[in-house]
């Protein structure tokens, strides 16, 4: 494959996959350690009506209104889950299931009613992701990487993804210690005077933002794979907080790149005609990594203590 082709077709998608999966992998560890993995599942579904509403109100598929709508929907969903759990007195899993399926269904109907589906945002994007459509047509060759005029035409999804990834990395770096405490000893954190509820809210909003940014690249449901799989694989292998969180991000980014490469470019380079949906390949790879970690994890460590505390 020639350099311009690689730059036009593969590089943007590769970078998008890496950013989306890396961001989700970074946040996934916090969700897993807080025993809140289902919230990632819930939020990635619940943002749909917000995305559609943001799209329908502005009529444009631009990042910020959709992001704002999605964050509002995510907030509403987390509040509703708490209300339903308390009022109906059902376990949080069932309350989560009731709320996020309703939001997702509402989003689907909104998509049908608002006409968003026929225009630009289609169902396939929600269900399967559209990594393949992230292209940079202005690229002429390696020199384009340094050419401001060409760089200005980088795909819109990349701007959003890069912005969210930078924000998430910055916030996680700033809140490194408080998040650590929140994950392992929420009571102690509260006793120290940490605003635990605000931290939780910040975490949830970051997850929602990552879900929106990744949504266009890997699809609504596969965001879940990236939120749980890297974190779970690391959880099986390590007891170290730093390794868990940073490793989750690295593994996520690696899975994104490897999955994309396996789906199209590698088989093509090998002369095969096989071409798979990239998001599907990434998610499958995530599952395989977890299964491998479960099988290969150090048995001695597993047998020593039931639930070792991470230091």
């Amino acid at each position: 494959m020639s350099a311009p082709d690689f730059l036009r077709l593969d590089l943007p998608a590769l970078v998008a996959a890496m950013l989306a999966c890396g961001t989700c992998g970074l946040l996934g560890s916090f969700l897993l350690l807080r025993r809140d993995s289902l919230l990632g599942d819930a939020l990635s579904h619940a943002v749909l009506p917000g995305i559609i509403a943001g799209f329908a109100l502005t009529g444009a598929r631009s990042g910020l209104p959709m992001l704002a709508g999605a964050l509002a929907a995510a907030l509403a969903a987390t509040v509703l889950i708490t209300v339903v759990r308390r009022a109906a007195r059902i376990e949080s899993g069932a309350a989560t299931g009731a709320v996020f399926t309703t939001f997702f269904a509402g989003g689907l109907v909104l998509m049908e009613v608002s006409g968003a589906r026929s225009v630009d945002l289609d169902l396939d994007c929600v269900l399967f992701g559209q990594l393949e459509t992230v292209v940079w047509l202005e690229a002429q060759g390696w020199s384009s990487l340094l050419d401001p005029a060409a760089l200005a035409h980088l795909p819109r999804q990349l701007h959003l993804l890069a912005g969210v990834a930078a924000a998430v990395v910055l916030i996680v770096a700033l809140l490194w210690r408080p998040l650590h405490l929140l994950c392992f000893d929420p009571d102690y954190a509260a006793a120290l005077g940490l605003p635990a509820r605000r931290l939780e809210m910040a975490l949830n909003l970051m997850v929602a933002a990552a879900a929106v940014a990744a949504f266009e690249a890997v699809g609504s449901i596969l965001v879940v794979a990236m939120l749980v799989c890297p974190a779970a694989a690391l959880r099986l292998l390590t007891d170290d907080y730093r390794v868990q969180v940073l490793g989750g991000a690295a593994l996520g980014a690696g899975l994104g790149v490897a999955g994309y490469a396996l789906a199209g470019p590698l088989p093509a380079a090998a002369g095969l005609t096989l071409s798979l949906n990239a998001a599907g390949a990434i998610g499958t790879l995530g599952g395989i990594v977890v299964a491998a970690a479960a099988l290969l994890r150090p048995r001695a460590a597993a047998g020593r203590r039931e639930e070792p505390a991470i230091a």
Partner: peptide
């Protein structure tokens, strides 16, 4: 025991679904 049931459900549903999509 390292992965609770809720996380296991999320892993399985997303990974199987991804395989289906592929």
């Amino acid at each position: 025991r390292r992965i609770r049931e809720d996380a296991a459900i999320a892993i399985v549903l997303s990974a199987f679904y991804a395989a289906g999509v592929a």
